[in-house]
């Protein structure tokens, strides 16, 4: 039996992606804590390794060594399914991101569509986690997660659609190829509003502060993952950071010219841009208070959505006139 070369390629890529996701999560956790520390005028993790560099690794080991607890009366299947379900779509998302012309796990023609489709799965995991853990805080967190994700998906889609209109393709590699090396040749110059809408929406999508309502710890203790311990919690934690990386990577692809940059094109430009975006996300988190839930939805339905629609219509109109 002949194994199709494409399958081998995907398996290899999947393994590579898993390693990459793990590495990224560790790095991001470290960065987040260091950034937070420096913003708050303290050193952050400092004890384990030089400048605390292996602290996240040790934390991961600690999480793995802890006991897995399930509350009495929880729905066992859903309870354990949820963290896994939150992790798997993220892995798939990583597959189709073009880091460079060569470093693309799985080049799909409808890459953008795939990403948007899989990104929506995450909310199912949060819902299951909140519902399955038989905890009232979890339930409230899950309810918040669902309405928030559903709401923020729409302006996100509309913002991305504007890019698709403009470039005429859903293939991520081609979207990057449509942009030039220099910053003024990137899509963000043509579509600044779409970028802002996209960036605001991904904060809501990934439950990052100031939109971290599903786990708002001063209101809901820990929201949907109140009852999770050990790697159950660890997977949610990793999925959150992996999700952040994915949405920032997509932002890089769509708006910031992907792997293209001045002088030397390559994956380093991709990483640099992604991490700048991630840094901004972390910066926001450690600066702002949390919005209230009705305000969160108001921002979405009353501001982002009309703006996104206007942006899309404007793009379509201009495309029709000039192209």
């Amino acid at each position: 039996m002949k194994i199709p070369i494409e399958l081998i390629r995907i398996v290899v890529a999947l393994v590579a992606v898993m390693a990459w996701v793990g590495l990224n999560a560790l790095l991001l956790v470290y960065c987040e804590r260091k950034y937070a520390g420096h913003i708050q005028r303290r050193p952050g993790p400092f004890e384990v390794g030089p400048h605390g560099i292996i602290q996240p690794l040790i934390d991961g080991l600690k999480l793995m060594a802890k006991q897995l607890l399930m509350p009495d009366g929880a729905d066992a299947i859903l309870f354990w399914l949820a963290p896994i379900l939150s992790m798997i779509p993220v892995l798939l998302l990583f597959l189709c991101i073009p880091y460079s012309p060569l470093l693309t796990g799985w080049e799909v023609n409808l890459g953008l569509l795939l990403i948007l489709a899989f990104a929506g799965l995450n909310v199912l995991a949060l819902l299951l986690a909140g519902w399955g853990s038989n905890n009232k805080w979890g339930l409230l967190g899950a309810a918040r997660a669902v309405s928030q994700s559903v709401a923020y998906e729409i302006p996100l889609l509309l913002a991305v659609l504007a890019i698709a209109f403009q470039t005429g393709t859903l293939n991520l590699t081609e979207i990057v190829n449509g942009q030039g090396s220099w910053p003024w040749q990137w899509n963000i110059i043509v579509q600044p509003l779409a970028f802002l809408i996209y960036f605001t929406s991904i904060l809501g999508e990934t439950n990052r502060a100031p939109f971290d309502l599903p786990e708002a710890e001063s209101e809901l203790t820990a929201g949907f993952h109140t009852e999770y311990s050990s790697m159950g919690f660890g997977l949610f934690f990793m999925a959150e950071y992996a999700n952040m990386v994915v949405v920032c990577s997509v932002a890089t692809v769509l708006f910031l010219g992907g792997w293209k940059g001045p002088f030397f094109d390559g994956w380093w430009w991709f990483l640099a841009k992604t991490y700048v975006l991630l840094f901004v996300m972390i910066w926001l988190r450690w600066t702002y208070p949390r919005v209230r839930f009705d305000q969160l939805l108001n921002i979405n339905w009353k501001w982002l959505l009309p703006l996104a629609v206007a942006n899309l219509l404007g793009t379509a109109f201009l495309m029709k006139v000039f192209a």
């Binding site: 420096h38 913003i39 708050q40 005028r41 910066w283 600066t287």
Partner: peptide
């Protein structure tokens, strides 16, 4: 953001 950014660049006090 400017305020937190400023403190990010300063030396820590602990």
């Amino acid at each position: 953001l400017k305020v937190t950014g400023k403190y990010f660049c300063q030396r820590h006090v602990t």
